[in-house]
Design a protein around this nucleic acid. Structure first.
Lengths: 344, 344
DNA sequence: TTGAAAGCGATACCAC
DNA sequence: GTGGTATCGCTTTCAA
C-alpha cells in the first residue's frame, strides 16, 4: 500500500556526520560557507546513507518545483504526425539531462481543458514550453500576462509577447523554390499549409520570396492551400494541374503533402522529376522511403527542443523575459524527386 | 524572479468559511465526516478564493507524488522511429485525463543513467511505465524487486515478475502469413526483427505458426534477421532472393523493413505484388504512402498506453501486484502490396 | 461532526 | 563557518 521506502532524512545524515541539519543542507546546496573537512564528513555520511533530498519538502519551502511543463495542443496533427513529437521530446529531454529538472507532459485536448491546464501550470511547474500552432491560442495570451516563464515552439502570429524558438520556415521554402528555379523550372506551383498556422504562412512567404529572387512572377492560381496531410497533397496536385497543365514543379509545405502530390502526378502519368519536380518540407523518414526519393527541407527539430529548454532555463534563472526570437537554420536535402531535371 | 503567485492556503479558506483547516481539508478530500451545510460553505469559500491545494505540502505528508513516470530506453529505435512514441504518449495521456495524476517523462540513454533514473523513480513517482524492449534491461529486475508499482510495455523475455501489456505480435504475424498463403504463395520468406527483442521473437514465432497452419514447411534459409530499420529490409530482401529466387512473398516484421524490401524488389525488377507479395507490421502512416500501398499488421499503440495506465492505477490503488498480462489484438490491413496475387 | 496541534523534510534567517 | 529554529501548506490523530 505504501509507495515510498523509508528514506533517510537530513536529520539522520546530520546525526551520522555529527553536525547539524543546517550544515548538511548547505553541503547539499553547494553553499560556499562550509569548511572543507566538515563538507567531506557530510558527504561521506550522505553517501553512506544513500541520502537524496525529498523533493516535496524542498519545494514547500523554496516554492519551486524543479519541473517544466511541455504543453501540447492535442489537436495538432502537425505535431503528432511524423517524428516531430518524438524528436522534440528527445531534444528537450537531452537538454534537461543533468539538470535535475524533470519534464512533465501536458496534452490539452479540448478548449475546456484549458483552464485546468492553466491552473495546473501556475502551481505545479516552474516553466512552460508551449507547442501550439493555432495562432490564436488563448493560452499564449495567458502565459504572456502570467508570471510563469514560458517559451513557445514556433513564432506566434499575433502576439510577440513571449520568447520563442522557430525554424527558418521562410528561408527553407525560399531555398526550395530557388533550387527548383535553378533546375530550370519556370512554372513552380505550391501546395501550402493552412494559413492560420504560422508554419503555413511562413512557408508560403518563402515561396514568394523564392520566386521573386528567381525573377519569376507570383501567380495566385499556382497556390493551393492544404492542411499538411497527405490527402490535401493529392487534391492540391489535382487542382493545380487542372488549372495549369504546364506546371513543371511543385513545392509542398510538408512531406506528407509532397507524397500525396507525387501520387497524384503518377496517377496522371506525369513523371517525377522529369515532367514535374517535387520538393517537400520536414525531411522526415518517409522522404527517404518514397520512389523516387523526396527532396525536402530539413528542420532540426531536436535542436529546436534543446534551444527552447536553454531559453527557458535562462528565464527561470532570473533573466528578464525580453521577448526574443531564436531562428534555427533549415537546409534543403536534394533527392531524386528534384534531381537531374535540367541536366536530364 | 519569484515563480509562484501568492496562492490562497487552506488557512485562508478556513477563515473565509469560518471554520478550521482540518474541516476544509476534509471537504477537499471528500471525507464523509462533514455536515452538508458546512461542506457547502467551505466549497463556496474555495470557489471564491480559487483555491487549489499545494501539491508539495500534500506530498510531504501523504508521501505520494501523484505522478507516474514513463521511462523509455533512449536507445530504442523502435520506439522513436515512427508514430509509436507519439501514439503511446497520447494513449497514456488520455487515460490520465481527469485523474490529477501527472505524467513525467524519463529517457534514460546510457547505462550510467540507470542508477540515476532508478533512484529518481524510487523517490519521485508513485508508479512507473517502462518501455524497453532490451530483454535484459536491469531496470526490469530492479523494478520487480522494488516496492514501486510498475507496468511494462511489451512482454519481458525472461522475467515474468511484472505485469505487462503487449500487442498480439504472434497472432498478427500468423495472420499476415496466413493471408499470404491464402493468396497462393508457397515460398513465404520473412525479414524478422532482432531476436533479442521480444517483438522480434514473437513475430518470428507467429511466422512459423502461420506456415504451419497453412501446411507449409519452415525453412531456415527463408529467414533473415533485420533490425527493424529500412536498410536491413533491403539487405534482407537481397539476401533472401539470392538464396532462393523463387520466393513469392515476404513478411517483414516492421513497416520500415517492408519498405526496404519493396525497394530492393523493385531494383531487381520483381513486381509487387505480382511476383512477390509483401506484408509489413505496424500499419504506420508510411504504409499508406508507398507505391503500392503496403499491407500491414495494425497494432493499437494508443490503446496499449491506455491499458498500461489502467493497470498501473490499479496497482497504485493497492491491488496486489499479481504479475499478469494483457494482450491486445492486432489485425491485418490489406493494401495493394498483397492484393490480387491469386486473383491476378 | 469539528477543532487543536503534531508532524512531514527541507530551507534560510539569525545569533554565535 | 556553524547550529538553533521558525516556516512552508497540508494531513491526520486525538479530544472535545
Amino acid at each position: 500500500m505504501d509507495v515510498q521506502e523509508k528514506r533517510p532524512t537530513l536529520e539522520q545524515v546530520a546525526e551520522v556526520a555529527g553536525t547539524s541539519r543546517a550544515t548538511v543542507s548547505r553541503v547539499i546546496n553547494h553553499s560556499p560557507k562550509v569548511s572543507a573537512p566538515v563538507r567531506e564528513t557530510v558527504e561521506r555520511a550522505i553517501a553512506q546513507l544513500g541520502y537524496t533530498p525529498n523533493r516535496a519538502a524542498r519545494s514547500l519551502v523554496t516554492r519551486r518545483t524543479n519541473s517544466v511543463g511541455l504543453v501540447v495542443a492535442e489537436s495538432e496533427q502537425r505535431v503528432f504526425g511524423e517524428p516531430f513529437f518524438a524528436d522534440l521530446v528527445r531534444g528537450v529531454s537531452t537538454a534537461l539531462d543533468g539538470t535535475d529538472v524533470q519534464l512533465v507532459l501536458l496534452l490539452n485536448r479540448s478548449d475546456q481543458d484549458r483552464s485546468r491546464v492553466q491552473e495546473f501550470l501556475a502551481s505545479h511547474v516552474d516553466g512552460v514550453l508551449l507547442v501550439s500552432s493555432r495562432t490564436e491560442d488563448p493560452l499564449i495570451e495567458q502565459l504572456a500576462t502570467g508570471s510563469i516563464p514560458a517559451v513557445l515552439a514556433g513564432r506566434p502570429l499575433h502576439t510577440a509577447q513571449l520568447p520563442y524558438v522557430d525554424v527558418d520556415n521562410v528561408g527553407g521554402a525560399r531555398q526550395a523554390v530557388g533550387h527548383l528555379a535553378e533546375l530550370g523550372c519556370t512554372r513552380i506551383a505550391t501546395v501550402t499549409g493552412p494559413q492560420d498556422m504560422v508554419a503555413g504562412v511562413d512557408r508560403l512567404a518563402g515561396y514568394r520570396q523564392g520566386l521573386e529572387a528567381a525573377g519569376l512572377p507570383f501567380d495566385d492560381e499556382l497556390v493551393f492551400e492544404g492542411d499538411f496531410g497527405g490527402d490535401s497533397g493529392e487534391q492540391g496536385a489535382a487542382q493545380l494541374l487542372d488549372r495549369h497543365g504546364d506546371v513543371d514543379a511543385i513545392f509542398a509545405a510538408s512531406d506528407l503533402m509532397a507524397i500525396g502530390t507525387m501520387q497524384e502526378l503518377k496517377r496522371r502519368g506525369r513523371r517525377v522529376p522529369d515532367d514535374v519536380a517535387v520538393v517537400g518540407f520536414d525531411d522526415s523518414v518517409i522522404a527517404t522511403t518514397t520512389q523516387p526519393g523526396l527532396s525536402s527541407v530539413h528542420q532540426a527539430v531536436g535542436e529546436l527542443g534543446r534551444q527552447m529548454i536553454e531559453r527557458l532555463l535562462e528565464l527561470m534563472g532570473g533573466s528578464t523575459p525580453v521577448p526574443n526570437a531564436t531562428i534555427l537554420p533549415t537546409h534543403l536535402v536534394v533527392r531524386e524527386s528534384s534531381r537531374g531535371v535540367a541536366e536530364g
